[in-house]
Design a protein around this nucleic acid. Structure first.
Lengths: 206, 206
DNA sequence: GGAAAAATTAAACAAATGTTTAAATTTTGG
DNA sequence: CCAAAATTTAAACATTTGTTTAATTTTTCC
């Protein structure tokens, strides 16, 4: 039995839905008000402005966007296990929230959020000690000689892009949304093997 | 000595620049007119409407977006060479036109172009015979057992995403645009090895 | 050189935008 | 129960939006 949403929560939910699908520029405050089922003035009563409301939604989205990373990295696993789990968790999460990667990258691309990424997003990741763990594994020859930045790019590419490419891929192959989702599920395993095979050296020096 | 641009060309160039950076919703026709250095009415004189002008720009962008694919696929190379060349050409091209992947995916995502991808984009690719070449290589055990759709997703992920993630990556690692570009150049070689290693079976049955 | 055509401009248009105002309604707390 | 506070509404606001009109300038071509 879920408690009734407050008006403030209803507005946030509606704003999230509308901003996510249409983007900041692609919607009006009246679109959001209509989704809430009420007046435009109410949005500004609670959130002062369209921009302030957007920033709130964006922050929440960014937080979701990075959450699996923090959870997995701070766990007590080997590097290889962490990478495997990260890919798994990210795919599972984005299968539930497929619009998130596009929303984040597009918002950043168009500078819809002026401030640089707040440190409270990045520090928790650094604090997991994942970077040190990676450098150590590299020094021990367990992992290929590659910079952490390139690893990040590899992981993000293979984990975010598939969800951003839905329309392009569907048109490109002439397939349905269901077919595409099936491809995504298969892709999870492919990406895991791809990345693990590449990063980790299979026959460490005896 | 380049001939003077016609007004029509100047408008198209300005529209391309503005649409690419700000998106269809993120700019006004007056933004474009200002970039041209002239009147708003002129845009409609030549192109009837903002939407028509956008569709023109989008078509051109999509054409550029797919061009390397067609060029490489219709060449006379082995599959492995084609994949290698494709990655190389795409990285080189997008290093010159880094906004293209984001523009295409974002426009499709927000349905800024209603029509499904015209067949004159897709047929040339199918007509290169690349799909048959792939299936044959798979049947001969030269290539891993993976669907063409998942291969496409792999290639696009690793070739498009890096250019889309500039802002996110710069903020994430706290690096400059120059550092990021350097990462991109290094990433080209990484992606080549990553994909080739994964797709092609190194020790075909003797 | 001058009329017809094409290109360019300034101005106006209605509609949509984000925001604010002030009034009406509902909730709160004594 | 009732006044004060909080919430919600309808209406108005000034700007900006895409587009059109009509006038002006430039080019074309006989």
């Amino acid at each position: 039995m879920k408690r009734d949403q407050t008006t403030e929560e209803k507005i946030k939910a509606a704003a999230k839905k509308v901003f996510m699908t249409k983007g900041f520029d692609g919607c009006s405050v009246r679109d959001i008000a209509k989704e809430v089922g009420s007046n435009v003035a109410l949005l500004n009563y609670y959130f002062r402005s369209k921009e302030k409301l957007f920033e709130l939604i964006f922050e929440g989205a960014m937080s979701d966007f990075l959450q699996s990373m923090i959870a997995v990295f701070s766990s007590d696993l080997t590097l290889k296990e962490k990478v495997e789990q990260l890919i798994d968790k990210e795919f599972t999460f984005f299968l539930e929230h497929p619009e998130l990667p596009m929303f984040i990258l597009q918002s950043l691309h168009q500078n819809k959020t002026d401030a640089p990424m707040p440190s409270h997003f990045l520090e928790p990741i650094a604090n997991t000690g994942i970077f040190e763990q990676f450098e150590k594994a590299k020094a021990q020859g367990e992992v290929r000689d590659i910079s952490i930045r390139n690893v990040t790019l590899l992981l993000m590419s293979n984990v975010h892009y598939p969800f951003m490419s839905k329309k392009l891929t569907m048109q490109f192959h002439g397939i349905s949304a269901e077919d595409f989702d099936e491809d995504l599920r298969k892709h999870k395993e492919i990406v895991k093997e791809l990345i693990i095979n590449y990063l980790f050296i299979s026959n460490p020096k005896a």
